[in-house]
């Protein structure tokens, strides 16, 4: 183990793994830190059909496992460790994890984003008792049961359609007057007899005894409230960046998304950001992978300019 790494990558989703591939190929000594599962959010998605080349059996776990394999083949080392703090101020950067302290010439921030908690009554109480944020993890439990999916975007429809393989019925609820998901997913949802779509409606409350038994829906137009018996509530409504650790250290917008230039450089020299954590308008596996590549190449360039031998 070198005392000083070239590149420390925080997060092993598609952005971090892609950065690992490019950094490894540039022969940078590279570590990739991940506190959860390698592959990030993408590894929890069953259908990953829009990533170019993912034609046959395109599941998230498979594709991200290949990305990992690829990064490791080029020399990047995966560390299943939780980053507790970072020191980005000096020329040598420090990453402190639950297992040790690592020093690097560059840091690539690729922590990703996660689905937000809605903060509605019952949500926290029933988390793990019918409220879930991961369809691939929990679908089995809802075999032959009725569930509701909150969120009519790509994630909501994609995960809702996955749930139809298990559940008796899947009701997708969107607060806005129309769904926001891509047309192909909307078509599939419309053609699936198990899927029911309700727009312009919010889930106001989740109720039950020990487990979820029903939700209270509110029509945003009329204000009318209705009860709907369900055993499961899957929440895919909105994301937040997992950037709390870096607050005050690199420039961010009000929501916590990191500001970068087209080279993925943050305002701190030697520190880059890639993937869902940065300000951008399309958060997809393909754009995360592109970010990672650019960040790693920019990191390589930064090292050659600032650490001449």
């Amino acid at each position: 183990m070198p005392d000083l790494y070239d590149c420390l990558i925080i997060g092993a989703g598609p952005a971090g793994l892609s950065a690992g591939i490019y950094a490894g190929r540039a022969r940078l000594n590279t570590l990739v830190f991940e506190k959860k599962q390698i592959g990030g959010q993408a590894s929890l998605t069953w259908g990953l059909e829009n990533y170019p080349g993912s034609v046959e059996d395109p599941t998230g776990p498979k594709i991200t496992a290949r990305m990992r394999e690829q990064a490791e083949a080029f020399g990047a080392i995966m560390k299943h460790e939780e980053v507790k703090s970072v020191d980005l101020s000096g020329k040598i950067k420090k990453v402190i994890t639950n297992k040790g302290t690592y020093e690097g010439k560059t840091v690539i921030l690729a922590p990703g984003a996660s689905h937000i908690r809605l903060g509605i009554p019952g949500e926290e109480e029933f988390t793990g008792k019918g409220v879930s944020y991961c369809a691939t993890c929990d679908a089995d439990f809802f075999t032959d049961l009725d569930v509701i999916v909150i969120g009519g975007g790509d994630s909501g429809l994609q995960e809702g359609l996955y749930l139809t393989k298990y559940c008796n019925s899947v009701t997708i609820v969107e607060m806005l007057p129309e769904l926001r998901a891509s047309k192909i997913l909307q078509e599939r949802a419309a053609n699936n007899p198990k899927v029911k779509i309700i727009t312009h409606t919010a889930v106001e409350k989740i109720e039950g005894q020990d487990l979820v038994e029903k939700v209270i829906l509110k029509n945003m137009e009329t204000g009318e409230r209705t009860e709907m018996p369900v055993q499961g509530v899957f929440v895919f409504a909105g994301m937040k960046p997992d950037t709390d650790l870096f607050k005050g250290l690199v420039d961010m917008d009000q929501k916590g998304y990191i500001k970068v230039d087209e080279y993925m450089r943050t305002n701190v020299p030697g520190v880059f950001a890639a993937g869902d954590c940065r300000i951008k308008w399309l958060r997809q596996v393909v754009t995360a992978a592109a970010d990672g590549a650019q960040a790693a190449v920019a990191a390589e360039q930064y090292i050659s300019e600032n650490f001449a031998e």
Partner: peptide
């Protein structure tokens, strides 16, 4: 746990 749960599989060795 289950095999389909990536989070579970990542935790298991630890």
């Amino acid at each position: 746990w289950s095999e389909k749960c990536e989070k579970c599989m990542a935790l298991m060795p630890e």
